[in-house]
Amino acid sequence: MNALRYLGRRAVSTVPMLLLVGLITFLLIHITPGDPASVVAGENATEEAIQEARRRLGLDKPFLVQFVTWLTSVLSGDLGTSFTSGKPVTELIFERMPITLSLTAGATLIGLLIAIPFGVFAATHRGSWADRTTILVTSMGIAAPEFFIGLLLVLVVALEWGILPATGYTPFSEDPIEWARGLILPSLALGLGIAAELTRQVRGAMIDVLSRDYIQTARAKGLSLFSIIVKHGLKNAAIPVVTVLGLQIRRLLGGTVIVEQIFAMNGVGSLAVRAVFHRDLPVLLGVALTTAIIVLIINLIVDLSYSYFDPKVRAG
């Protein structure tokens, strides 16, 4: 019951947040130079055609009227219609969301698969050559931007070795193997940065946990190191790691914009980039709102996970 009440409170608190996101995005788009009506009317359009496009798109109305019209439409579940393609924004986002979500999930998986073993290994071998190497490599991983890693991976793995495709996305329903092959490089480009950040977090948290009395007691009782790490260490070290993971997933959503360009994937990031170039306001607003909702859901999941990892939080 408490949990339900908590979820209800959180859901209500997201409403002003989403409103604010909508308002700020609306404002930012309107103060950005550029004229959507000119873009829609096309190259060499007459003044009459531009005005007709402005009227048709509702851009001739005052700012507040435009915002309220959009908001009313959003509240009824309609994100509007793309200025340029004429398709419903919801449909455009849903068409592309599987690509971005696959990419984000792939990157997160890669991050975790690398971070947990390497972080634990570095923590259990603190001060060793392997530990120092881990710190050095993760520092480089954090510093290297996604586009750099992406281009390097394409150059070596796709173009030199020719073992994975350099671009494109195959839907899972069409060919699961090609879907996976196409996701490896972009997920690595996105995920290696996360892996570096998480490895350091896992290492730090595990060093802290491994120095606690209950771990010493477990050791004194003769439990194996593996058993101590899995049963006691990882769960107790999880809270700071999950917090950082939540932050990193938000970063990933931003990173997909770049990675989708490099790998010619038509996900939500790419949709946003094209919407910027075409001044497609409804699409931009829809993408901003959807991304904000995803981030709020991730925040909620992270918060809820605290009570799983730490019973004291649940009791509180």
Partner: peptide, 19 residues
Amino acid sequence: AQFVPDGRARLNALRSGQA
């Protein structure tokens, strides 16, 4: 016909066989 705004991605696609 695929619209790929990034020139590098277009050339890479050709080199690795997607185009």
